[in-house]
């Protein structure tokens, strides 16, 4: 560490960006899917926490981290289903339901997760892409988890899906105009509910990554707003899955700043460095929002941009 000096900080930030960005990536991909269908699910923060708890518990009980990831995806889609069904009723506010799901999700996760705070569950495997380097910090930074690669692939797959497939077109039409979708014989409420379910599954996997790889344990402070920041990140990425990938890396880097400085012994004011991702999110929201013009790329039926 000493021989690297301050170079340790950018290396740690890079490695941190890869490590910290994965939950951002999964939650934002899920949110893109949901928002493209014309609904916003603010409850993904709760889904992330429930995914972390379920993933950890199942991985511990079964001994298989991948079973944990699957269970987290199932729990996430169950939460998405509840959100989707409730929002299909007339005059129900999707933003407020998201807040309620956030409270219910964290509540249930803490309630059922209490017995799993102590036990140690198996970790998800990672791929040592830094084998060529003799510097341990570089090796550690490039120790990339399989879920990160899956998430990156999913970003491009979603982009392709929206662009060229029939499902993608259906979701986009429903998101842009309920009337046009009805005229085409589609059922907007059903499409939106399914999109919210799929989005919830993504967020659940993001949660499993938190508890099964980094930080790699289950406790009540596992998520501090990552799910919420990922929702804001979708606005920044203009509802484009590939842009979400880049934005997630950027936010991951900001999130890694605090721990990186701590690792080289800078602890003065580290609480303030921990605010970096929140401040960045807020700054990005201020810079990209507008009162006068509609946002480019925004789905027409989305309540936050209407």
């Amino acid at each position: 560490m000493n021989e690297l000096g301050l170079w340790a900080i950018p290396i740690a930030v890079l490695g941190g960006a890869i490590r910290v960005s994965t939950p951002f990536l999964f939650v934002s991909l899920g949110e893109v899917l949901t928002e493209r269908s014309g609904r916003i699910n603010l409850g993904l923060e709760g889904t992330l926490v429930i995914g972390a708890m379920v993933g950890y518990a199942v991985a511990y009980l079964s001994g298989s981290p991948w079973l944990g990831v699957l269970a987290a995806a199932a729990a996430g889609s169950a939460f998405g289903l509840i959100h989707g069904l409730i929002c299909s009723l007339p005059r129900v506010n999707d933003i407020a339901i998201g807040i309620a799901m956030m409270i219910l999700g964290t509540g249930l996760a803490f309630y059922f997760g209490k017995p799993f705070v102590q036990p140690v569950a198996p970790d998800l495997p990672s791929i040592p892409l830094g084998w060529w380097s003799s510097i341990p910090q570089v090796e550690a930074a490039l120790n990339v988890n399989v879920l990160f690669l899956i998430g990156a692939a999913a970003a491009f797959a979603l982009w392709w899906m929206f662009k060229t497939t029939r499902i993608g077109l259906v979701i986009r039409v429903v998101g842009d105009s309920t009337d046009a979708a009805r005229a085409m014989g589609l059922r907007p409420a059903v499409v939106r509910t399914l999109a919210t379910m799929a989005g919830g599954a993504f967020a659940g996997v993001g949660g499993a990554y938190l508890s099964l790889f980094y930080p790699g344990s289950w406790n009540e402070g596992i998520s501090s707003g990552q799910g919420l920041m990922a929702v804001a990140l979708v606005i920044f990425a203009r509802w484009n899955p590939v842009a979400c990938f880049g934005a997630a890396l950027l936010f991951g880097g900001a999130g890694a700043l605090g721990p990186s400085l701590q690792s080289v012994g800078i602890s003065q004011g580290y609480h303030l460095f921990f605010t970096a991702p929140y401040v960045l999110t807020l700054g990005v929201l201020i810079a990209t929002s507008s009162t006068t013009r509609a946002m480019t790329g925004a789905p027409g039926e989305l309540s936050i941009t209407k």
């Binding site: 603010l42 933003i95 807040i99 919420l228 929702v231 804001a232 606005i235 807020l282 929201l285 201020i286 929002s289 507008s290 009162t291 006068t292 936050i304």
Partner: peptide
């Protein structure tokens, strides 16, 4: 700026 007040 039209920033969503819930998230902010």
């Amino acid at each position: 700026r039209g920033v969503n007040e819930t998230i902010a």
